[in-house]
Design a protein around this nucleic acid. Structure first.
Lengths: 295, 295
DNA sequence: CTGAAAGCGCTTACAG
DNA sequence: CTGAAAGCGCTTACAG
């Protein structure tokens, strides 16, 4: 492996000039910068990661804690993780994966050993214990998902309230006056995840403003249970003419097959709108999927 | 953050003694070792990761390349990733997550910068391009999944052939003479994944040895298509009395609901055996799940 | 059984 | 615009 000395020698400059030319932390004459870059390229030079961590103050690594709860949707989870890693790379950062086992002690370990420069908390619940921990840590951290106490934190999340509102507005404009929301599994609401509740609030309030009749059923990983709830739903006096699906992929499929078995055609008899979910819809015939971002 | 000097001072020894006492790379008298450990504990000392990488020869980090293909089962994928991270921690290793975007250039980067000590390739296909790459890299790597050319590689995988054999043997012992295998999606076989084929081979050969009649249908992420195949299957002259399910969770559920709709009871009319899959079976009533390991 | 010291390969004040 | 040199915090021969 070529070192900074090799590059300096090849380019005929000092190692400090190589460092400055490559990091851009000091202005370097156009000519020497070019020579250094060429030398680095021909020698296939990459700075030694350990030396970079020691000499400087940055490790160029983030820690990512991504807990797998019982009700975590693996597909959605993975898409978040992959996006994060790819985005980090654009800033010359790598991502260290922390498991739940290590959630607390591990974060302290990688922080105190200066292995990571920052921490990303994925899928943060309202009363997430990781939040208290990272607040005391001397490195920056951000949460994806909004905890109850956001003091001193930078929180990022999708605007699920807006998703609920947009879903209602869209269907209202098509003339629907009775709309049902098929939500996440019941336990997801229980464990403090805030996004399904925010979506539901946006949904309810937008419907109330328009005087629209609403229904709600929990999603379910058990097809029979979900089908039974749908059956109840459509046996009501004013059954919905549109369904907003915030459940998982299996829920979507169950709804589809339930409607088909029931002889209800989409969109002639019932409209379907998928909202606030993210998975591959290739196998479905859902007309729309709405997600907005906020900060 | 406490450094090795702080610990040395606190324990009244030299920094080299601290290093040796903590790493165990040289014998240290019982008494001083204890003093060093106590000092480290009270100062909450953790070795600086960058310094450890530089001074020594190890970064204590593995790179994990875990491609998400179109037919990747996210749940299975995640369970592999989490297991790997947890197992790595037992050897004082952290795991750096590489995405597909960086599969080739990224591996070279983390190797040449000495960021990682080794590479783990997950879900390796028969003609996986990553295999050629890591063969030339100066650090060790292991594959999970077996490529065509295993020269100079250490390959690890589950023994899916044995899974297929065990499935047949188990059902044969219960007296079944006509067994169907519900496999992975058709495209999974196409892209060079070897495990479903190995399972199928084990299944076929074990059945042939026993003179058992076999059927095969591809799994499918589309419920209708899979149901149609099952319908064909049970309309045959000698329909199966047992199904071995190597399909994904949705496939399992589709089979269940198909059998229920058909009026076929489990296990009275048809036996079900889940083989070579890994996901939470809480929502199913499958009787058995078999996986064996080999090296 | 233990210590003084070189060295790992960078970054970054300090000088010119 | 550039260089010589200190220093980051470890590990590990070299000495005793």
């Amino acid at each position: 492996m070529a070192t900074i000395h090799d590059v300096a020698h090849e380019a005929g400059v000092s190692i400090s000039t190589v460092s400055y030319a490559l990091t851009g932390k000091r202005s370097v004459s156009e000519a020497t910068r070019k020579r250094v870059e060429e030398a680095a390229l021909t020698l296939k030079y990459l700075p030694n990661a350990g030396a970079r961590m020691m000499g400087g103050t940055r490790s160029h690594i983030f820690a990512l804690t991504a807990p797998m709860r019982h009700d975590t949707n693996p597909a959605v989870h993975m898409s978040f993780v992959l996006s994060l890693v790819n985005e980090a790379r654009k800033f010359d950062y790598d991502v260290l994966l922390m498991t739940e086992d290590e959630a607390t002690r591990g974060l302290e370990r990688v922080t105190k050993s200066r292995l990571v420069d920052g921490i990303i908390l994925l899928d943060v619940a309202a009363d997430d214990e990781r939040v208290e921990l990272v607040r005391d840590l001397p490195i920056p951290s951000i949460t994806i998902g909004v905890p109850d106490n956001t003091d001193g934190l930078i929180c990022v999340d999708l605007d699920f309230r807006a998703v609920g509102e947009i879903a209602v507005r869209t269907l209202a404009e098509y003339g629907h006056r009775s709309i049902a929301l098929v939500g996440q599994a019941e336990e997801t609401y229980g464990r403090g995840a805030t996004f399904p509740l925010r979506l539901r609030n946006g949904f309810d309030e937008a419907a109330a403003r328009r005087g629209i009749n609403t229904h709600f059923v929990f999603g379910d990983s058990n097809g029979g249970r979900l089908r039974a709830r749908l059956e109840d739903l459509f046996n009501k006096e004013h059954p919905p003419t549109a369904l907003v699906l915030n459940c998982d992929e299996f829920g979507h499929k169950t709804v589809e097959s339930y409607l088909a078995a029931k002889g209800l055609r989409v969109p002639d008899d019932v409209s379907l709108l998928s909202a606030g979910t993210s998975f591959d819809m290739d196998e479905l015939d859902i007309p729309l999927d709405t997600i907005d971002r906020n900060y």
